[in-house]
Nucleic acid binder design. Structure first.
Lengths: 210, 210
DNA sequence: GTCAAATGTAGACAACATCTACATAATGAC
DNA sequence: GTCATTATGTAGATGTTGTCTACATTTGAC
């Protein structure tokens, strides 16, 4: 069987469906996603995707679990940039990494934070969310242990820290909501906002000079 | 024609459709909303709502414009509680008013911040959004003028301040995303978070003692 | 009272998710 | 290697939805 011949079996339809779904969401948003449309794009019958996903919600849950893994990875990779320094520097770097990923993948970010996606979460998605939450929570607690807002209720500190990052990502990823008329230099905007929430001792080098 | 008799004309179908839509969203979320379902609930034919809304997006835009007006009003009413004091106290009060409204109307809050709703915004919705934005921006600028982070880039300060409020609202309104395992006292949580973002001179009375 | 505009109805259509029965291919026991 | 089992893909059916069109009823301006 040649690589170009039309085969009865696709080979890896599940992965192809997930890839195409991500493309569609990135291009036209969640509302443009349909199982039949994906099947058409991939040249398979309209029922084929259902062999791999019980329903549309399960496809979205798969996609979202994947997205949470990606944003967790991106955040942890950024953490290395600040890991050798103070826990606050590490947390600061994580915030920037998180925001950068969200702004480079706005539609996927909106998907993983979409209420109707979370509503139908399966165990894999819940685990991915919890993994992300635990990662962030630990970094926040480490920073608090090292002197960041030592007197604030830990739950409130976790909420505040997450709120700055998620809120900024949500506002910037959604042009309709952006409260600022202009934002010419996105990077310096991100750095300023993160630095307000997670100040880093100015004696130390933070790696971002804008 | 008696009040109970079935009339050919509904009387105020447009308002009834909007009300019922808000109920459905509050009860079962945006994905549960359908024009035909609303028509059934109201005892009119399936095409009747289309006489008042060009399409589903226009209904949502109407609903969202209404929601923005409500959250703007709620925020401004809260502002009065801190208006006599420092501009930062006013901004702090607005943050609490905003968050309280969002948590009392989580589904409507999710609707007005929903990307697919904003995507199809009409001029009324855009105006309502801009009205909200302007209200918040002015309060932030007033606080900055009165000494809140005087050296920070104003755009970044606007983003940061909005991010705390929107982010906390989004995280708390969406149980799936809440980063804290426990939040027994929601009010004190809100107050703590807002106070972190918008500190109020502790010499002054802020009106919230938790 | 007449007539145009506003509002509601009923039927049609295409797209969709999902289900079922069936067809084909891949896999593994023997 | 054969063959049964399983995985995967197909084709058609069903019910729901948004939207359109033709038509019916009511309202209101004059």
């Amino acid at each position: 069987m040649s690589l170009t011949s039309k085969q009865y079996h696709h080979g890896d339809l599940k992965a192809a469906v997930l890839d195409r779904a991500a493309e569609i969401i990135a291009a036209d948003g969640l509302e443009a996603l349909s199982l039949r449309g994906i099947a058409r794009d991939l040249g398979v019958s309209h029922g084929a995707p259902n062999r791999h996903f019980k329903n549309k919600a399960e496809l979205l849950a798969n996609l979202a679990a994947n997205g949470w893994h990606k944003i967790t990875t991106a955040t942890l990779e950024a953490a290395e940039a600040g890991a050798a320094q103070h826990p606050s520097a590490r947390l600061n770097a994580m915030g920037r990494g998180f925001l950068s990923w969200a702004l480079q993948n706005p539609s996927l970010f909106q998907t993983i934070t979409h209420p109707d996606v979370g509503r139908h979460a399966d165990s894999a998605l819940r685990a991915a969310q919890e993994d992300f939450r635990a990662t962030i929570r630990q970094a926040i607690e480490a920073a608090q242990g090292a002197g960041r807002h030592p007197d604030v209720n830990p739950s409130a500190l976790v909420l505040y820290t997450n709120a700055v990052a998620f809120g900024a990502a949500m506002l910037l990823a959604n042009p309709q909501l952006s409260p600022m008329a202009d934002h010419r230099d996105l990077n310096s905007l991100i750095n300023t906002v993160i630095d307000m929430a997670v100040p880093v001792n100015s004696n130390e080098t933070t790696g971002h000079s804008s």
